[in-house]
Simulated assay, not measured.
Amino acid sequence: MNRIEAKMKALQEKGEKAFITYITAGLPDLEGTKKLLKAQEEAGLDVVELGIPFSDPVADGPVIQDASYKAICNGINLKKVFVTVEELRKEGSELPIVFMMYYNTILHYGVEAFVKKCNEVGVDGLIIPDLPLEEQEEIAKYLNQDETTILIQLVSPVSGDRIPKILDGAKGFVYCVSSMGVTGQGADFHKEVLSYLKSVKAVAKIPVMMGFGIRTAEDVKPMKDTIDGAIVGSHFIRLMEENDYSTKVAAEYCSTFKKELN
């Protein structure tokens, strides 16, 4: 059982909802990223999605696209992020870390070498939005050799009949995309979002998380009885940019959201 699974189990035993944020690696710089992650962990964040900067982040809206571009301009790449995660672990952080990234970055690094490095440094999970179920065999082959790093599955309002197939054997949690299009649409959820989430919950054997467009715990109040947690990305990035990547603001936001969510 890796850190994500252990955290989800502990939350379910306590009857708590999970709170997850997304942050682009390398902003304001790698040392600043580490400070933000530590501050959020201390504030009660359950899992973090660490975005690996990519030149063409097709699932992301303008806010995360811009953050990715800034990080690339800062010279941030996958190798440097691996070093940062390794440092975090050596400094005692047990925050479950999920890499949110695109498959081309993994292919460029080498799939087998990438999985091996994730296991070595302490990456707990992967979310790869441009890797559909039918094309996961190559990376799954290496992930299944070592249970340390797991692949998180994404479903959307149009997944429909494919949901049971996508979730068959899924690990960690399922990421439910709450709207059509890209990230950061400001609580503009799909009109059938509740029935869609219920259909996922009916077949999922793992916790169901809702993401895309969430800003406050109030946004997910109507879905609270169906979901097991919420994910905030673009809003958190914007909040950090507006407050000069303040660890205090990050901690306060996480603490408040988590409290209101539960």
Rank of each mutant, 00 (worst) to 15 (best):
N2R: 09
E5I: 06
A6Q: 14
A6W: 04
M8E: 03
K9Q: 13
L11D: 07
E13T: 12
K14D: 12
K14T: 02
G15L: 02
E16S: 09
F19A: 05
F19M: 10
Y22F: 15
I23N: 09
I23L: 15
T24V: 14
G26N: 06
G26S: 04
L30W: 03
G32Y: 08
G32I: 07
K35R: 15
K38C: 05
A39G: 10
Q40N: 12
E41A: 13
A43Q: 09
G51R: 09
P53C: 12
F54N: 06
S55E: 13
S55L: 06
D56F: 07
P57I: 02
V58C: 08
D60T: 08
G61Y: 03
I64K: 02
Q65R: 10
A67Q: 04
S68T: 11
A71R: 06
I76D: 00
N77I: 11
K79W: 04
F82L: 07
F82M: 07
T84L: 14
E86P: 02
K90V: 11
K90T: 12
E91V: 11
E94Y: 05
P96M: 11
I97V: 15
I97Q: 06
M100D: 07
Y102D: 01
Y102C: 06
N104H: 08
I106A: 07
H108S: 15
E112M: 11
E112S: 13
E112V: 12
F114I: 10
C118Q: 10
V121M: 09
V121K: 00
G122S: 11
L126T: 08
I128F: 02
L131I: 06
P132H: 04
P132S: 06
E137S: 14
E138Q: 14
E138H: 13
Y142T: 10
Q145Y: 08
D146W: 07
E147K: 13
T148F: 13
T149Y: 06
L151T: 07
V158N: 10
G160D: 02
G160V: 00
G160N: 10
R162M: 04
I166T: 03
D168K: 14
D168S: 12
K171V: 03
K171G: 04
S179I: 00
S179Q: 02
G184L: 05
F189C: 00
V193C: 00
L194E: 08
S195Y: 01
K198G: 10
V203W: 04
V203S: 02
A204N: 09
I206G: 05
P207I: 01
V208W: 01
M209Y: 10
M210Y: 00
G213V: 02
G213P: 02
T216I: 09
E218R: 08
P222D: 03
M223A: 10
K224A: 13
T226H: 01
A230Y: 04
A230V: 05
I231D: 12
I231G: 04
I231K: 03
V232E: 03
S234F: 08
F236E: 02
I237R: 13
R238C: 02
L239N: 13
E242A: 10
T247Q: 11
A250I: 05
A251H: 04
A251F: 03
A251M: 04
A251G: 05
E252N: 14
E252C: 07
E252P: 05
T256H: 13
K258W: 01
L261Y: 08
